[in-house]
Simulated assay, not measured.
Amino acid sequence: MSRTSAAFARMHDRLFAHLGDEAVLRDGEPAIVVVTENVELLGDYGQVAQTVTTGTFLVSQTPRPGDALTVAGQAWQIDRILRGDAHTVECILRKSAA
């Protein structure tokens, strides 16, 4: 791992420690997630195509579509992966019935 990559990994770890919420991913796996509401997804012509809630995870937590997620007593399901890089993965969340 390069020095730059290591610095970014430490930065993400610290940001998630301060800004993230404790959560339960899948079947009881502890996770830290940053939930962001009212994220606007843009369409082909710059219009707002959809407004969603996203959850950003550290890549080491390996979130996958269909995974159950519980944050602050609220049940969610990961709908799809929106974007990711070497350190984080941002997913679109759907409220879960159960």
Results as ranks from 00 to 15, higher is better:
S60V: 07
A6T: 13
L69E: 02
C91E: 00
S2E: 11
S60G: 11
H87G: 00
F8R: 13
N38V: 06
A7G: 15
L42M: 12
E29N: 14
G66K: 02
G46T: 00
A49I: 02
I81Q: 04
F57M: 01
G46P: 02
P30S: 11
A97E: 13
A75V: 04
S96Y: 04
R26G: 13
P30W: 10
W76R: 00
T62V: 02
S60P: 01
A6E: 12
M1V: 01
Q77T: 08
F16I: 05
V34A: 15
T51H: 07
D21Y: 12
Y45T: 10
F8V: 15
P65Y: 07
A7T: 15
T54D: 00
T4Y: 15
E37H: 14
R83A: 09
D13A: 13
R14A: 14
V24H: 11
I92E: 09
G73S: 10
A86L: 01
D44C: 03
G84E: 03
L58R: 00
I81H: 10
W76A: 00
G66V: 05
G20L: 11
G73H: 08
T53G: 08
I32D: 05
K95T: 12
F16W: 10
M1Q: 11
R94A: 10
V39M: 08
R80Q: 02
R26D: 13
S2I: 05
A72L: 01
G73I: 07
D13G: 12
G28E: 09
L82W: 09
G43L: 00
T54Q: 03
L42T: 09
H18I: 12
A17R: 10
D67T: 03
Q47L: 06
A7F: 15
G55L: 05
T88G: 12
A86M: 10
I78D: 03
W76G: 04
A7R: 14
A68Y: 03
L42A: 12
R80L: 02
G46N: 03
E22P: 12
L42S: 04
L19H: 15
A17F: 14
D67G: 11
E22R: 14
A98F: 05
E22C: 14
N38Q: 12
V33T: 02
S5T: 14
T36C: 10
R14F: 14
S5Q: 13
R26C: 15
L19K: 14
K95E: 00
R26N: 13
G43V: 03
Q50R: 14
R26Y: 11
A68G: 06
Q74P: 06
D21P: 09
I92W: 08
